[in-house]
Design a binder for these strands. Sequence first.
DNA 1: CAGGTC
DNA 2: CCTGG
Length: 288
Amino acid sequence: MKLESHFNLDYTLSCGQVFRWGKANGWWYGIVDGSILKVRQEGDELHFSAYPEDVEDEFIKSYFRLDDDLTNILRIINKDATINKAIQQFNGLRIVRQSVWDCLISYVCATNASIAIIESMLRNLSEMFGDEIVVNGKAFFSFPKVKKLAKASVNKIKLCNVGYRARFLSEIAKQVENNPNLLEELRNSDYLKLRDELRSLPGVGPKVADCVSLFAFDKLEAFPIDVWIRRVIYQIKGAAIPRTKDGTEKPLTVSEYTELSSFARRHYGKFAGYAQEYLFYYIRSKDR
DNA sequence: CAGGTC
DNA sequence: CCTGG
């Protein structure tokens, strides 16, 4: 497929927004909605195939948000020196349009865990509760379906090394099982309403709700704040992070979260979520 | 400690 | 709080 506007597959899949993609022999392999996608970029050509069934160009365009006017978005969010550097360095990074269920479960797992551990948890869940898909003799496992997870006991879910998150996963699965439209109904809500609705689910606080709003509900104004983004925002504001007496950073409170994320929306505008992705990748690649 | 939440 | 790197 010929790319019509700028895009960088490596940045897009490496920046930390998706957990079920890996690169091998120059190809990216990902598990998306029960299919195995194989993708490779060569300049302005995007090569891809899918198993067990092929996918249309339209699916790829939608998944990688190739329909977003990235030039315009980057122009709008380019409001300070830090984001300017991030944009220079990672130009072509796009937000991935994830499916709601996978995204929700993934980010509930992502609380208080490092990326390597999140990936391991999702792999374990998929191997235990997903369907096996064999491609070229290699086994992949699709994401667990709602029904499968709803029927599983908390103890069995815990075998996936998800720790205390097991009861959240179980409870969310049961709620969705009892009300299959629960999540899709929210699509018509505006961002703030959606955020509140998502927060009513167990294990979903402001950070997870913003991630799901941004990655699965097209709410590009959502601005998820974690410890890294928090540091950048204070840096941009020219203010110091609140610290305790012993010098460590104070935990982020809900009111501080609300204040910082509304600052980010005032500062970056309606595409603040794009700013967040660029900043997150930039600060992570710089500070480690 | 780690991309928070109850 | 769970738990692996």
